[in-house]
């Protein structure tokens, strides 16, 4: 639907009816705005005073945006830096784990107690065992 032209609300506009309507409406509104009862006016003044005396809300955007960007950058650096500087034993551990996956249960037990068997191998053999041989 094509809109009809908007009247310019001046005396020379061809749509005189619309111009008259706008003029009268505006005049009535202006008069009504000038004639407001004293109680409402008092409340309006109080509302204005309250609004102007309220503390200004600080605009935190200039602070929050750089802070958020900095935090994101630090997090990204941490994510990138951490794998590069991981302990050198990590791959070995991963390898052991991979081996364990394919072993049966007795091998798993032995593998889990490698430290114990290492320690046991370094101990001197008891005398009773030596004499028995």
């Amino acid at each position: 639907m094509k809109p009809t032209p908007t009247p310019d609300f001046d005396k020379n506009h061809p749509d005189r009816a619309a111009a008259n309507l706008a003029t009268h409406a505006h005049a009535l509104f202006a008069i009504a705005s000038e004639h407001i009862d004293s109680d409402t006016l008092r409340r309006l003044r109080a509302a204005r005073s309250d609004a102007l005396s309220a503390p200004r809300r600080r605009n935190l955007l200039p602070v929050l945006v750089p802070a958020g960007a900095l935090a994101a950058a630090v997090l990204a650096l941490a994510v990138v830096w951490h794998p590069l500087h991981a302990p050198s034993t990590a791959p070995a551990t991963a390898g052991t784990g991979a081996m364990l996956v394919s072993a049966d249960s007795s091998e798993v037990d032995m593998a889990q107690n490698l430290d114990f068997y290492d320690w046991l191998a370094t101990q001197p053999q008891p005398a009773s065992a030596a004499s028995a041989q």
């Binding site: 609300f9 001046d10 005396k11 003029t23 505006h26 005049a27 008069i31």
Partner: peptide, 22 residues
């Protein structure tokens, strides 16, 4: 009841910039 001086009020309002927000 609408005063005659209201004729043309719509277009006649001069945009006077206020000094303060108040």
């Amino acid at each position: 009841a609408v005063p005659q001086h209201s004729e043309g009020l719509v277009a006649a309002r001069a945009p006077e910039l206020p000094v303060t927000l108040e």
